[in-house]
């Protein structure tokens, strides 16, 4: 691993002051550190944001849940508030990687990294999340740009992620048996006004599946998805799965998610 300067800082201001084109914020490091080990990424400065107290914790209101960026997956998974308000979100967190990843990995880290096979980005889209950063608020629809690319600007730091509580919701993942990342994951959330279906693992970036949303908006049932055609063109095709299989899984998982919605 290339050498770098490690900074442990206590405030968002301090973090931003240190940030440069060659720095990275560390919020768990579950993807960043392996990438550095393999020489796929290198930085001059690593800015550890774990000790910024304001970025931690879970706050629930009647309409939304706000989760601090450095909240660990294990904390979200075991949070009574999250389980009560959006149980699917707690279950999603409980299914990320393995126990040790959940003990270190954070929601902010996952979202900022925007791995196309990560789970949290689908929750952000499906649960109408607002990403509160050091500079502004960004709606999830505008946050995930492309593979490992987000709307975050240089030095901009995610502070909290705010999820809108749906009437019911469910997340279904088909993990790659090798890496445990999502081969495909489908998040279905039903609101009074609309149904949102977010898909991860299938394209270069998480996206909303309009075809299934349309079907579910007119008839919220698993059978409504039967008639939907999912095109495989544009879907990922790699060692883990072909685009055809991913297209197939999207439907299968969406149906399962609808059936499992609560």
């Amino acid at each position: 691993m290339k050498s770098f300067n490690f900074h442990s800082i206590k405030s968002v201001k301090e973090a931003q002051k240190l940030a440069s084109g060659k720095s990275v914020y560390l919020a768990g490091g579950m993807t960043t550190i392996p990438a550095m080990k393999h020489g796929l990424a290198s930085y001059s400065d690593i800015i550890d944001i774990k000790n910024i107290k304001d970025l931690s914790g879970i706050k629930v209101s009647s309409k939304s849940i706000r989760i601090g960026a450095i909240t660990k997956h294990a904390e979200v998974a075991s949070s009574k508030e999250v389980r009560k308000s959006i149980s699917s979100l707690a279950l999603l967190a409980d299914g990320i990687g393995d126990a040790q990843v959940r003990n270190r990995g954070t929601i902010g880290g996952s979202i900022a990294n925007n791995d196309p096979t990560a789970d949290y980005p689908s929750a952000c889209l499906a649960l109408n999340a607002t990403i509160h950063t050091s500079n502004r608020k960004i709606h999830a629809n505008k946050f995930f740009k492309d593979m490992f690319e987000t709307a975050l600007k240089k030095g901009e730091l995610i502070e909290t992620v705010e999820f809108q509580i749906p009437t019911k919701s469910s997340y279904e993942k088909f993990p790659s048996p090798a890496s445990l990342y999502a081969m495909v994951g489908v998040y279905v959330a039903k609101y009074k006004s609309e149904v949102i279906v977010a898909v991860t693992g299938a394209q270069s970036v998480v996206y909303r599946c309009k075809e299934i949303e349309n079907a579910l908006n007119s008839n919220f049932s698993a059978s409504a998805i039967d008639g939907v055609k999912i095109k495989s063109s544009g879907l990922n095709s790699d060692i883990h799965a072909s685009s055809d299989y991913r297209a197939h899984l999207i439907k299968v998982l969406a149906k399962k998610a609808v059936t499992g919605c609560k």
Binding site: S176, P177, I239
Partner: peptide, 13 residues
């Protein structure tokens, strides 16, 4: 070799 890590080569778990 495109299965050169535990991310790509499936070990029984």
């Amino acid at each position: 070799l495109i299965t050169a890590s535990y991310m790509d080569y499936t070990m029984p778990r």
